[in-house]
Design a binder for these strands. Structure first.
Length: 498
RNA sequence: GAGGGUGUAGCUCAGUUGGCAGAGCACCGGAUUUUUAAUCCUGUGGCCGUGGGUUCGAGUCCCACCACCCUCACCA
């Protein structure tokens, strides 16, 4: 009996597998599972292996349907998701990762072993099929089976055939059901892989080197988020899951990797929402001798390459919005957008404070902070079309280089799509003394929170880091936009569940 | 962390004013050799999220807890 003996059907307990769920005294055997177990035994008794092995020469069903040829001998395999039984014959739907195809299984067209399989076939079983391609009376492309092999007998009942698996909690927890029961889900994750592939290709073609830097760090740095804490036993060492790879990628700039990037997980011990998962995929890229303007072009280029792959028209529906990614994307200053959506500019201190008060936000404190509250309240969610926001007030960006031409502003942009922050880029600070001061200020201001100066990083800057542009892109959010997914959990295969 | 919502059969969902626990799909048995949510007949299936309380009587009302969803807060 498995540890989750109580959890007998595919769905019944969302927390299957968790410790402590096992019921003491007398396991509850599910009726459906018992029936299918009996089938397994019956097959074995007849010398048929209910859990088959290697099955060579399988073609994707979409490919077979796409290159239809009357009478062609084909071999397919997949999960049986529907069956229409007529006694001595039956139609069934066979689904693989490419799509589905109809099977026609008639007893007098099958060898005896296959008839045994047909007689015990249940929804959800994984089967292998040999047959000839043809069309049914209604014109549907159909494999007319001559041989059936049971490749894996399903013991648990699949979701309902018409409505499918809707319960979002079960979908996230039992993605292994969700993926085949809801074809859109499979399509979304296929696209996710394609998007990341396009981004990699774009960077690789331009001479960027993909690297992997530590996810377990003794000093978590590169972002202000709270880290997850863990512990190394034999070293008796506190370690932190990284909140950002930034400080390591910059060390690589120092080491002479002039164009470097990483696509991998970051971990932030913060709230969860439709746009935040505790572990999420970030792409960070650094380019020596560049600045944030070059990063802006890079952002548009690499996201554009992914869009061209999936949406060549560059027009994308996202929820109720029609997004237009035709180049060039809008570039606007922070001040400009504040005036546009909040009706006050950065130079109008009294106006900013009264507007904040009007909106019920804190009107006190440093004026840039007040402005930023207004930016959050009034501007961010209005940035539906892809928009680069530039010229952030320098005090909002303590780790960015100030503009050489106007030191009130930082050399930074954020890029928004559908009201979501999707990218963030700087002209990176490479003055070690300046950096050290800013680190120490941060530590002083981080009351109670863990914050330690990464002395080795300062040392690295002292060795000399070339001036550089740095860019971070939230991959999950880009995938959300490009797959019309309203929730970050819809684009993460196994999102965190309590 | 705050507010709102949801939780009923394996799945998708009804459940009236507090009065016998329901449907469709799935499943068991029967009929059916071109259907596609196949059809027809028949039957099985319930810890109503968990634990308390009110009541003659609770799926329904009250309290607490658990999980999930939404909004907000946190998140340079």
């Amino acid at each position: 009996m498995t540890p989750a003996a109580r959890c007998v059907s595919i769905i019944p307990c969302p927390r299957a597998g968790r410790q402590g769920f096992q019921v003491g005294g007398g396991t509850v055997e599910d009726r459906f599972e018992q029936e299918r177990m009996a089938t397994v035994e019956a097959l074995r008794a007849k010398g048929v292996d209910p859990y088959g092995s290697r099955f060579d020469g399988v073609a994707p069903v979409a490919q077979i349907a796409g290159a239809y040829e009357e009478g062609r001998v084909v071999r397919v395999a997949g999960r049986m998701t529907a069956m229409r039984n007529f006694g001595k014959a039956a139609f069934a739907d066979l689904r693989d990762s490419s799509g589905k195809i109809q099977l026609y299984m008639k007893q007098d067209m099958l060898d005896p072993a296959s008839v045994e399989v047909l007689q015990v076939l249940d929804l959800g079983d994984v089967i292998g099929v040999d047959g000839k391609l043809g069309k049914s009376r209604t014109g549907e492309i159909t494999v007319f089976a001559s041989g059936l092999r049971m490749l894996s007998k399903a013991l648990l009942t699949p979701p309902e055939k018409w409505h499918g698996l809707r319960d979002v909690e079960i979908r996230y927890r039992q993605r292994y059901v969700d993926l085949w029961a809801n074809p859109d889900v499979m399509a979304t994750f296929r696209r996710r892989t394609q998007i990341i592939g396009a981004i990699r290709r774009y960077l690789d073609e331009r001479g960027f080197l993909e690297v992997e830097t530590p996810m377990m760090q003794a000093i978590p740095g590169g972002a202000a988020a709270r880290p997850f804490v863990t512990h190394h036993n034999t070293l008796d060492l506190a370690l932190y899951m990284r909140v950002s790879p930034e400080l390591y990628l910059k060390r690589l700039l120092v080491g002479g990797m002039e164009k470097v990037y990483e696509i991998n997980r970051n971990f932030r011990n913060e709230g969860i929402s439709t746009r935040h998962n505790p572990e999420f995929t970030m792409m960070e890229v650094y380019q020596a001798y560049a600045d944030f303007n070059i990063m802006m072009d890079l952002t548009e280029g690499l996201i554009g390459s992914a869009i061209d792959l999936l949406h060549p028209s560059r027009k994308i529906s996202y929820g109720l919005h029609e997004l237009d990614f035709t180049s060039p994307w809008r570039r606007a200053t922070y001040d400009q957008l504040l005036k546009e959506h909040a009706g006050v500019g950065l130079d109008d201190e009294a106006g900013l404070r009264s507007k904040a008060k009007e909106l019920g936000r804190d009107p006190n404190g440093e004026i840039a902070a007040v402005a930023d509250r207004l930016f959050e309240s009034c501007v961010e969610h209005q940035l539906i079309q892809p928009t680069f926001v530039t010229h952030y007030p320098i005090t909002l960006c303590p780790l960015t280089k100030a503009s050489a031409t106007d030191p009130r502003f930082a050399e930074r942009f954020e890029m928004y799509i559908a009201g979501m922050e999707c990218a963030n880029a700087y002209t990176e600070l490479n003055d070690p003394i300046d950096q050290e001061h800013r680190f120490r200020n941060q530590v002083e201001q981080a009351e109670g929170q863990l914050r330690v100066v990464d002395e080795d990083f300062v040392r690295a800057l002292k060795v000399g880091m070339p001036p550089a542009g740095g860019l971070g892109i939230g991959i999950d959010r880009i995938v959300m936009v490009l797959t019309n997914s309203p929730c970050i959990r819809d684009v993460i295969l196994f999102p965190l569940m309590r």
